[in-house]
Amino acid sequence: MLKISGAAKIYGGQTIFSRFDLTVAQGQFNVLVGPSGCGKSTLFDGLTNVISLDKMALSWKGEALPHLGCHAAYMQQKDLLLPWFSLLDNALLPVKIGNQSLAAMTTMAENLFSRMGLKGYESHRPNEVSGGMRQRCALVRTLMFNRDLILLDEPLSALDAITRRRLQSLLLLLQTEFNKTILMITHDIEEALLLADEVYILSPLPMVITDRFVLDQEKPRKFTDPRLLEIKEKVLAQLQEGAHR
């Protein structure tokens, strides 16, 4: 279980969040939805030790940690692929840096490439393929971290709507097939409702959780489910209310 308690950050006199608590149970896919600039990314930066928070008690699998630096894989909006490496070499970057067996992981990466529809593009360079393919490659790289916890920071928001829908089902594989524990931030409500076990609604600064929805519908989900549509309306209302506050 990932447990964040009492996270606080004041930046330039502005309280970004104070006493922020969150838990993600093992194997769960939890999603934070909030308006842009509400402090979601600051929280993630604090979790990954990019910035230091003023206060935070953090534990993962019962072990208290200062940050998640070496325990979580991280994927964000930018694919951050290295232009001088092929797609396969990019995906294997965490393996080359870590001490994992390259041979075994290469086979795994190649399998994932065909699952993700990247077969035949292993030796292409990032600038030779589409944004959707680059992000799929970044997803394979995220799995190659070989870590049980995955932080997703708006991983699909740079993609067009059609590509995004297709990649959402691939993100779901992280949970259903690889049993990862996932914490994602997004501002796409539909995306949150399609993927999440629990959705947290965030307010603008200072960031607090204003509502929480537990979704037990079986995945993969479709937006024809009236309950999902009902929740979507509620969430939208919440977010609009937050915006006018």
């Binding site: 990019v50 630096g69 979580a72 991280y74 951050l80 290295l82 080359k96 840096i97 971290f145």
Partner: peptide
């Protein structure tokens, strides 16, 4: 800097980061 963060999260040493990221 975003690439540096990526390398740090992968647990890369300065040598790895230099050879795979900074130098190219």
């Amino acid at each position: 800097p975003e690439y540096r963060v990526l390398f740090r999260l992968m647990g890369a040493s300065f040598y790895d980061t230099f050879m795979l990221l900074y130098w190219p």
